[in-house]
Design a protein around this nucleic acid. Sequence first.
DNA 1: CTAATTTAAAATGTATACATTTTTTGTCAA
DNA 2: TTGACAAAAAATGTATACATTTTAAATTAG
Lengths: 213, 213
Amino acid sequence: MLKKQQLYQQFKQDIQLQHWAAGQVLTQQQLAQHYAVSRIVVRDAQQTLLSEGWLTAHGKAGMRVPGFSAAEAEELAMLRLQLEPLALTLAAPKLNFSQLGLAEDVLQQMHCGKALPPYQRGELNWQFHRLLYQPCDKPHLLQLLDQLHQQVSRYLGYQEHALDYAGTSADEHQQLLALLRSKDTTAACALLTAHISHAAALLVQYLKNKQDA
Amino acid sequence: MLKKQQLYQQFKQDIQLQHWAAGQVLTQQQLAQHYAVSRIVVRDAQQTLLSEGWLTAHGKAGMRVPGFSAAEAEELAMLRLQLEPLALTLAAPKLNFSQLGLAEDVLQQMHCGKALPPYQRGELNWQFHRLLYQPCDKPHLLQLLDQLHQQVSRYLGYQEHALDYAGTSADEHQQLLALLRSKDTTAACALLTAHISHAAALLVQYLKNKQDA
DNA sequence: CTAATTTAAAATGTATACATTTTTTGTCAA
DNA sequence: TTGACAAAAAATGTATACATTTTAAATTAG
């Protein structure tokens, strides 16, 4: 596999697991040495991670590991609420049973085996949602959603530790599939909206508490 | 100035002016030679342009200059309509007169001097809108909008040649400012929606005609 | 002691050279 | 002729070396 991609994944995962502290400033050389690759490889991965929000620019030299805030979590939820129901509305009429089957497979992977690491859980969760939106056939919309979920997944470490949300989330996912199978697009979108709001509210609440302490 | 940024701007502009034909496949070496820089510089610019949609991937080697389609123009308009009124709603209450003044300055630059090249006209147009949205204080929303307008600006060459829209557009911009000055957020959003729809409809119509011919 | 300027160190930008992968070309057998 | 396979060409990935820019430190003037 390409070193650039290896580093990209490893580094992203390390940020999510908070092996690099929020606020810390990192240099290309530091990372090149730490991960035992040349600076070129770091530069390539860096640019991608910057554009995806896993890193933020820090003056002209260095990149900063971004922190977490309730305000940001709230904004991301707002944007999801603005775009995901739209995607589902467009996609629902075109969803066939084989696609719903794929989504169900992902769901099973997600909830049967216990104790998945956060990055894997987040990956599967987005795979599930993505499969439902895919048939909307709007590449730019799907790309924006991919980006948003990159951001959201930064917070998944928190959700994992703080919230006992897995059970409710599983139920909501199953209900969503049932509504889509019965072609009740309106109800599916309403449920999706509630699903996103619910998850976001818990996360925001947790972050606010943590902020006070 | 950094060569990477020089190349980034020059190349983007060349694509917009269709000096590189849509569908054409370009290699790093080709571009490095053509623009007289090293491949490293091309790689850096390439990655940015890929993530912004000015180029698309083409297998494992080479990058393709993307084409234009009515469907894509329609999708971009849909996304603008979904996000820009939201941004304006959030920003309008916080807009002060000095900010509105800045916007008016941009408008003057845009419509007084005649015959601006397309990339400059597009830049100013987005500067105007961006100034109005800025106070919403939602970095991710603003970032998504920046991206969307990168895409839209790819089409600006067409708008320039095909549509005699400048007059109407100028009027709508002035009206929008007036409504914002009088703190009529609702009306401003309605006008913004009409403004985006109007411009998009003309562009889509033009592209559909061209597609038939 | 503060602030400004100079100097050294460190970090990033860029070019070149080499390695690996991918694409194309050409050959041969069915 | 067609298709599979092998070899050559071309393109991208990666490392190293050097240039430029940026940051930090040190020095000196006020």
